[in-house]
Amino acid sequence: MRRPLHPAWLVLILMSLLAIMAEQLLPQAATARLLAPFSPPSWQAGWVGWLGSDDLGRSISGLLLIGLRESLLVAVGSLLLALPLGCVLGLLSAFQGTLAQAAERLTMTCQVLPRFFLAILVAAFYGATREGLILVLGLSSWPLVARLVRAETLSLLQRPWLIASRLDGVSPWRLAWRHLLPHALQPLRAAASTVFGAAVMAEAAIGFIGLGDPRYQSLGALLAQAFGLGPLLPWLACSAGGLLLGLILLVQWGLPPTDET
């Protein structure tokens, strides 16, 4: 039986489509001066002028779309790194042996790594690039996934039908793929939600302190820009912050996260 798609996912998919087509919908929004500086929001100029322009004359709606694209790219990218790594290491550490112990030790060590500080360090010393940020966030958030998968696997390994299939001589790989992973999906989804939300937050925070990828506009950088303008452009801060907030709330709504960080 298939459940209908959660409404949060419909909105998220729509947002992703808009973000992917940012360059087509509003070309050069982040770089070109498309409007007069400080234009108020209006319908007349179409999409470009919908939310007015910033102090440089860039279209705010265009900047928001590009910021959204960056948030989603970084979050999805780090998720694609963290999930497989966490799954493999979590499964591995649930079994016995030297390799399992090493995997558990590695998980416990990497778990305390201060992610945000590492991201700042890498951005400052290796260059502020989107790819670097994805790498840091992905490689530092897999321990959460691994821990949840490990806990689920440990409890699953005690179930009678799993003991039966182990006694039956099913190979460990087949056991992991056919019997363990499908059951670990529920905690995996919760972990994915947490990792995704944390990545969106981290990307914006890095942008806010001015260490984001200078080639693209981050939503956090937009907020910093808005704060610098004081009370001049209230809708810039509101729209950029609101978009960030909405994104995180939507993901939490669609996929309830875990209590752990």
């Binding site: 939300g197 937050m201 914006a204 925070a205 806010f208 956090g220 907020l223 910093a224 704060f227 009370p231 801060a237 912050g241 960030l244 907030l245 995180i248 709330l249 939490q252």
Partner: peptide
């Protein structure tokens, strides 16, 4: 609380300054 949990800290800081200081 869900709203407070999801709001970026620096935006919250800015809003607090706007409200209580300015």
């Amino acid at each position: 609380c869900l709203l407070l949990f999801a709001i970026p800290v620096y935006w919250l800081a800015h809003l607090l300054v706007q409200g209580f200081s300015l």
